[in-house]
C-alpha cells in the first residue's frame, strides 16, 4: 500500500484525532531496526519537513508506516461513521420492528401448507379491495388462520358514507374482499366479518373524489 499522505491526519491537539490516531491504537512496539513504531509514524508524517535517510532505506519502518496508513484510513472512516453502541442498537431495533410488523404468517391455499404470506402483506391487498368500493374506507384488517387447515378468517372495520343502505354496501365490500383474497392472493377464506366503525362524509359535487371522515380528521 502506498503512503498517500500521512500528514492528512488531523493535528494531535484535536481530541477526536488523538482518540483515532493509528499509532495510539497499536501501542508503542519496537521494530526490528530498533525504532519505535510511534517514532516511525511521526517521522513519516513529518517527512516533508525533515527528510529521514533511515526511513528511506528501512524496510521495517516502511512496512510499519504502510500498515499504519491503512489503519489510520480505516479508523477515520469508522470515526466518520460513528458506529456507537446506540447506532448499532438502533439498527438492531429497526430490524426487529420490521420483522414484528410482518405479523403472523398465514397459509396460502395449497394443500402442502408450505406456502405462506405475511398478515400485513395480505391485509394491504384486502384493504385496498375494500377501498375500491365507492363510499368505503377500510380502517383495519386482521386475518386469523383456522387451526389445522388453510382457511383464514378476515375481520375488517370500515368507515362508510351513509348515502346508501348499509347491508348492500357491506355485501359489496364482502364480494370485493373475497374476490381479492382468491384472485390476487390465493387465500382460502372461511369468513369475512365486517364492522362499521365510523362514518364518512358523502362526496359533494365540487369536492375531490375522496370521501372524508365526518369529524374532519381524515383516515
Amino acid at each position: 500500500m502506498a503512503l498517500d499522505d500521512p500528514r492528512a491526519t488531523p493535528p494531535p491537539d484535536d481530541p477526536a484525532a488523538r482518540e483515532a490516531d493509528a499509532a495510539r491504537l497499536i501501542g508503542d512496539e519496537r521494530l526490528p531496526c530498533g525504532r519505535l513504531v510511534s517514532h516511525a509514524w511521526e517521522q513519516a508524517r513529518a517527512a516533508g519537513d525533515q527528510p529521514d535517510p533511515h526511513m528511506d532505506g528501512c524496510a521495517f519502518c516502511r512496512q510499519a508506516v504502510e500498515g499504519l496508513t491503512a489503519l489510520d484510513s480505516t479508523t477515520r472512516t469508522l470515526w466518520a461513521e460513528r458506529p456507537s453502541a446506540r447506532t448499532v442498537a438502533d439498527r438492531v431495533m429497526r430490524a426487529v420492528r420490521a420483522e414484528v410488523r410482518l405479523g403472523r404468517m398465514l397459509p396460502l391455499d395449497d394443500p402442502t401448507r408450505e406456502l405462506r404470506i405475511a398478515e400485513t402483506a395480505a391485509a394491504k391487498v384486502l384493504r385496498r379491495a375494500a377501498d375500491r368500493v365507492p363510499g368505503v374506507r377500510a380502517a383495519s384488517c386482521r386475518l386469523t388462520p383456522a387451526e389445522g387447515s388453510t382457511r383464514v378468517t378476515i375481520a375488517m372495520t370500515l368507515a362508510v358514507t351513509l348515502d346508501r343502505p348499509l347491508p348492500g354496501r357491506a355485501a359489496e365490500v364482502r364480494r370485493a374482499v373475497a374476490h381479492a383474497a382468491e384472485q390476487e392472493l390465493g387465500l382460502a377464506v372461511s369468513t369475512i366479518d365486517l364492522r362499521i366503525a365510523s362514518v364518512l362524509e358523502p362526496l359533494k359535487p365540487t369536492a375531490s373524489d375522496e370521501p372524508t371522515l365526518r369529524d374532519g380528521s381524515g383516515r
Binding site: M105, R116, A121, V125, A180, E184, L203
Partner: peptide, 21 residues
C-alpha cells in the same frame, strides 16, 4: 417453504359487484 413477506406494484383490478353510489 415459501413465505411472501410483501407485494409490490399496484394492479388496478375490477371485482364483481362494485357499483357507483
Amino acid at each position: 417453504v415459501v413465505t411472501v413477506t410483501r407485494t409490490t406494484g399496484h394492479r388496478p383490478s375490477h371485482h364483481p359487484g362494485t357499483t357507483a353510489p
